[in-house]
Nucleic acid binder design. Structure first.
Lengths: 110, 110
DNA sequence: GTATGATGCCTACCGATTCTAGGTATCAGG
DNA sequence: CCTGATACCTAGAATCGGTAGGCATCATAC
């Protein structure tokens, strides 16, 4: 990965994917681009990370996918957040906030 | 793990251990307690996570351990941060900050 | 006095997840 | 025609935290 790109920590990718999809239906490749763009190029999700993750997430019922043809005329598999997925996003965001807070507490210590 | 305790994300444990030791020499069991206490009971590091992590970190030269007897009269292995470990702590804190910032950016999106 | 829980160390294995590195195909632009 | 971007996928490596066990000592409670 490029030196100015941060590696993800395990457990954050699901949240990022769900968040990306919460902004609207999107296909896999587009999810990568959206995350990269929203993070000001700081986060780069590898394809080899994304597709297995999407599959896992779909198995859990958090997203549903369907093949379609988008405006450019090319086929792609579009994913949308399910109701359960939206709930899961909230849960994961809350966990993330708790973790960030807890670590901040430890780091405050002198 | 107790329901009000957060699981760590992979990659955060090293930073927490280094931070705990940056406050002063400590033995393994004490590191667990210090992290738990500093985080207001939000972070609970399991022994099965800590000892292997300590070993890894020592191999990397970030901490150095020595057996000693502490005030209670019991033996314990005390670890202290090395110069390299202090530098590593700074690096990991910077990475953590970047990740938190990047994820915050993604989450801001509407 | 003995049972229990806290302190203190350790290891083996499991499970989850991300990355690397490959593969395939289409399409636009130089 | 060749390259890079778009778009999908998989296999395998590597990492790492947790679970579950083991061992020993000590203080406290019953």
């Amino acid at each position: 990965m490029a030196k100015d790109k941060a590696d993800l920590l395990q457990g954050t990718l699901d949240m990022l994917i769900l968040k990306a999809l919460s902004l609207g239906e999107l296909h896999g490749y587009g999810i990568i681009q959206r995350i990269r763009q929203l993070s000001d190029e700081m986060l780069n999700v590898e394809q080899g990370s994304l597709y297995p993750a999407l599959y896992r997430i779909e198995q859990k019922g958090w997203v549903s996918g369907r093949w379609d043809i988008h405006e450019t005329g090319r086929e792609a598999k579009f994913y949308k957040l399910t109701r359960s997925g939206r709930k899961q996003l909230e849960t994961q965001e809350a966990s993330w906030d708790r973790l960030v807070l807890a670590i901040a507490k430890v780091r405050q210590a002198t």
